[in-house]
Design a binder for these strands. Structure first.
Lengths: 128, 128
DNA sequence: GGCCGTGGTTACCAACCGGATACCGGTTAT
DNA sequence: ATAACCGGTATCCGGTTGGTAACCACGGCC
């Protein structure tokens, strides 16, 4: 719950752009997964999402907020900080995400194979 | 099964670009739904997808074929024709799609409301 | 006063996606 | 012969997405 997010949470892995199933924009799904275990500060999110520049992370967060999937709270007590957390609506998205994730894990190899043979076939068709 | 696809299959409806959950490119999910009931010819697909230009439809079909989700068959017997049909892999995608679709139907209003109030709030913040 | 950390913003830019329009090569029907 | 149909291509183009780099307002702290 209050465990910090590890920097290699999405290491190497997560070629989300290759996945035919997408939730929101490019990084939205990863953001949501980061918030699964409770509210997080902007700087906390930046740790596992180090490949995402602040601008793009903010874009993603704003977009999720706009859709009512996450809630942004500015705390002014003691030290000023901003926390992001899943709304009930955002939480409800975890189910279809899990199903999609299961499908991807199950068929990932098949998908890559299909692409490779398709690309090989079309390349042959072009050059020879 | 052999019923023709109706032209208003996706009429009015299906602002898929607003849906946070997406399968493949802009039209892929609709193409898949068209193929649910069996193989279809290119010209058959163009009926419900009349808003999609031939180039874009071809792009979508190629992309789905590349991922091994659909199979393209050129028939040379009697009358030449091209048929597209779901592969087993493509068929397996129907389950996560159904889950995603259920989520969207269930939360669509909530989503639109969230956007509207967010946009109103930010607009107020800008002008006033 | 100067510096640091937080949570961003701004300006600029390249790539990609999707769309409009026009055209095309082969086959069948007339 | 020629016209229509089928299954696309070719070309161009504008809008959006995502990325880089630089900057910034605010408060706390030394």
């Amino acid at each position: 719950m209050r465990k910090p997010l590890s920097a290699d949470m999405f290491d190497e892995l997560c070629p989300s752009s290759l996945n035919p199933i997408r939730f929101g924009d490019k990084w939205a799904a990863l953001v949501i997964r980061c918030l699964e275990s409770g509210p997080r500060r902007y700087s906390e999110l930046r740790v596992p999402l180090s490949r995402v520049t602040p601008k793009v992370l903010t874009q993603s967060l704003r977009s999720l907020e706009r859709d009512g999937l996450i809630k942004r709270t500015v705390h002014t007590d003691t030290t000023p900080r901003v926390e992001y957390e899943l709304t009930p609506l955002g939480h409800s998205l975890l189910e279809p995400m899990a199903v999609a994730c299961a499908w991807t894990e199950q068929h990932w190899d098949e998908l890559l194979d299909a692409r490779e043979s398709y690309d090989n076939a079309t390349r042959l068709h072009q050059t020879g």
